[in-house]
Design a protein around this nucleic acid. Structure first.
Length: 729
DNA sequence: AGCACGCCGACT
DNA sequence: GTCGGCGTGCTC
């Protein structure tokens, strides 16, 4: 006889809360949801255990209101992973559980799959008077009339109606005149397997052979230069996993989950594919999640949070672009999907494949330590030669809006030869600064320690840190002068310079501003791929776009900003960016050329990339981290604090330091102001902790953090713990 | 995180 | 005289 229902609920609770069983109805199950009273409200929670007794007196327990799942939603392995993650990242348990569930389940809706197949009339719709509706809402009345004739109206039939029939139908459903017809369907993509893969070369073969689905755990790093066919290795392993009747979980960075990737998987694989990402409608997301859990999906492709999706027949986990920072959640529940995926694979005893052209130093360290097997792919498809890197010394070179004359000449050469040129600058807008030429006034955000970016197209000043936007001032607020000038470079400015320099070759710009509209990124990439446009320019987004075989010239407009970043990971990010962008170019008959504009051609990082490629850079960087006692050589945790009051964060962190247990193993730095001290009107500070091992750091946090919560200064700030931060200082 | 309680300013 | 500001404290 169960006495206690232990329930994880959203809120600042480290552990689950105890309840009494419901007065009547089905019994709660571990891994299933219940509705429980919490304070003055009701909330959805996850049952984590059914212990015999509670630490609390019986009369303090309240009863479960309702059992939402009569069977578990989460199996014990998935629950254990979530619990582990909540402890390791020091995040409230209930929040971790709820982060793992699709929105509909979080809200308490039924865990049943369904896809909309059409609409039909309701009783009140049948009785509705068409006449009155006809004048006010002619579209609704036309639809209602059709529905009244009986049967189900399908989406295809709906397309036959004039105007925005979907909106009109939504109105009818809202008024209760029509209802959605759903079929119990997971809405999976059926793999077509109608395209056979390229024959694997020796390197690919070696990597693929190392991946033995469902045959024990092994972590395998596929260190494959761009164009070397990493995806072919995944596809081979996934297809073999499907043949064994096992499921594959593929985790990709946010921006990596493109329709092209999904298409490629669908064309090549034979199984059923489920997609899980934030852009999906709630219903689609629930379907995909349930299909994974039911074992109906053979392949689950998803972003970060997919690492928690339950799998009935797990066989293989793939993490694509494992170096990508977006695999680590940057706020709230700050977990690393990559690290959790490796742990999950270990616990499920299945292989985990990590792939990247520019592996993280963490993964390289794991390879050197023998924890991961490493399979390099150095040959590019079709024997394409690697692009050649060159530095372009900007010192004293005549420039026009950031483009040096030698670079312009080189671009012209490639265009004349029938090639495409790709220019990379990781800064959107026209210019990062607007300055008064008379008095030196700068357009600065009043809520951040940052300057406004001048966006010429939108005619706005925009703060990229807090999103504040202003119209461009006509006069300088300092001296009234009208001579306000744009200082520095952004993609808009490069676009303008290119348009002027190459009037016959209009450039396409690919950044967050130019691709705001749905599908516009894909459209721009298509134009670039199909050669409709021969000058391509953009940010970060380009580094993750698809291969552009006709590109013969890649130019990094400004490498200098990455050379002197304050964050100890800045060099790693620059190196990855350069290599990723460079990888877009070239094919067998036309090797690409990569030009890096810099004022510091002698800089060791650039020299290393130039002569030894990413591998040489990574070796040195690892040695430097080792010498400096930084990750991955040591474990790091940041305690961040922010508040509107200027001194509150530092004061809190100082008090926190006072409370810290004596422990010689823990190195403490700070508290010190965050890299951008003020952001969105809040002052920020942080504290860095380093230790030789994760476990000693975890033990320290376990003894320390509970005391922090009780600190009176804690109420004046918002504070959080970031274990294994990817953005540090 | 919500959501109350509680104790001080500008309004019908 | 109240409506409501957000400081403080609790939720099994």
């Amino acid at each position: 006889m169960t006495e206690v229902i232990r329930v994880a609920v959203a809120g600042p609770f480290t552990d689950a809360l105890d309840y009494r069983p419901p007065a009547s109805g089905p019994a709660p199950v571990v891994g299933g949801r219940v509705r429980v009273p919490l304070g003055r409200r009701n909330t959805v929670g996850m049952v984590t255990a059914l212990p015999a007794a509670s630490d609390l007196a019986d009369d303090r327990l309240r009863a479960v209101t309702e059992v939402l799942d009569s069977a578990p939603l989460l199996d014990s392995a998935t629950s254990a992973l979530i619990e582990w993650a909540a402890r390791y990242y020091h995040h409230p348990l209930g929040e971790a559980y709820l982060a793992a569930l699709p929105a509909r389940l979080r809200r308490g809706q039924a865990a049943t799959p369904g896809v909309e197949t059409g609409w039909r009339i309701t009783e009140s719709g049948q009785a509705a008077q068409l006449e009155r509706l006809r004048r006010r809402a002619p579209r609704q009345s036309a639809l209602l009339e059709a529905l009244q004739r009986g049967g189900t109206l399908t989406a295809i039939e709906l397309a036959g109606f004039s105007g925005d029939a979907r909106a009109a139908l939504r109105r009818l459903v809202e008024q209760g005149l029509a209802e959605t017809v759903t079929a119990p369907d997971y809405g999976l993509l059926q793999g077509l397997a109608d395209e056979s893969g390229a024959t694997l070369n020796d390197e690919q073969q070696a990597g693929a052979a190392a991946i033995r689905p469902a045959a024990g755990h092994q972590a395998i790093l596929i260190d494959g230069v761009t164009g070397s066919g990493k995806t072919e290795v995944y596809l081979d392993a996934i297809e073999r996993t499907i043949a064994l009747g096992r499921q594959t979980l593929v985790i990709v960075p946010e921006i990596g989950l493109t329709p092209q990737l999904v298409n490629r998987f669908q064309r090549r694989l034979s199984g059923r594919i489920a997609i899980l990402h934030s852009g999906l409608a709630d219903g689609e997301r629930l379907n995909a999640w349930l299909a994974a859990r039911a074992g109906e999906a053979d392949v689950v492709i998803g972003t970060r949070s997919a690492v928690f999706v339950p799998l009935r027949y797990p066989g293989l986990i793939v993490i694509d672009e494992e170096h990508d920072a977006s695999l680590k959640q940057q706020e709230g529940f700050r977990y690393s999907a990559r690290d959790l995926a490796v742990l999950r694979g270990y616990r499920l005893d299945i292989p985990v494949v990590l792939g990247s052209a520019t592996p993280s130093l963490e993964s390289l360290a794991n390879t050197l330590a023998g924890r991961y097997a490493c399979y390099p792919l150095r040959q590019r498809a079709g024997g394409a030669r690697p692009p050649s890197l060159q530095l372009l010394d900007m010192r004293g070179a005549p420039t026009r809006d950031g483009l040096s004359q030698p670079l312009i000449d080189r671009v012209r050469g490639h265009l004349d030869a029938g090639g495409q040129a790709l220019l990379f600058l990781n800064r959107r807008g026209f210019a990062p600064t607007l300055i008064c030429h008379e008095c030196g006034w700068l357009a600065e955000c009043d809520r951040c320690d940052a300057r406004y970016t001048y966006h010429r197209g939108r005619q706005r000043l925009h703060c990229h840190h807090c999103d504040r936007e202003l119209p461009i001032p006509r006069h300088c607020p300092g001296c009234g002068s009208v001579d306000l000038r744009a200082l520095g470079l952004g993609t808009e400015r490069i676009e303008a310079a290119l348009t002027e320099a190459f009037p016959d070759t209009p450039p396409v710009r690919i950044d967050r501003d130019s691709t705001r509209r749905r599908g516009s990124f894909e459209e721009a990439m298509r134009r670039a791929r199909e050669g409709e446009t021969r000058l391509i320019l953009g940010t970060q987004m380009l580094a993750k776009g698809h291969h552009l075989p006709a590109v013969t010239l890649v130019a990094i407009i400004d490498a200098d900003q990455g050379l002197f970043g304050a964050d100890f990971r800045a060099p790693e990010r620059l190196a990855q960016q350069v290599i990723q962008v460079a990888g877009r170019a070239g094919r067998a008959d036309r090797p690409g050329e990569v030009i890096i504009q810099t004022h510091h051609p002698e800089h060791p990082l650039l020299q290393q990339l130039l002569h030894g490629g990413y591998a040489a850079f990574a070796r040195t960087a690892l040695a430097e981290r080792e010498a400096a006692g930084l990750p991955p050589a040591r474990a790091m945790v940041l305690i961040r604090a922010e508040a509107t009051a200027h001194d509150a964060p530092i004061t809190f962190l100082q008090a926190a330091m006072q409370q810290a247990p004596v422990d010689a193993d823990i190195e403490r730095l700070g508290p010190y102001p965050a890299p951008m001290e003020r952001r969105a009107g809040r002052h920020r500070a942080q504290l860095m902790l380093l230790a030789d091992s994760r476990s000693s750091l975890q033990a320290f946090l376990g003894r320390w953090l509970p005391a922090l919560t009780r600190l009176p200064q804690a109420r004046q700030v918002r504070w959080s713990v970031d274990v294994d931060p990817v953005e540090a200082l």
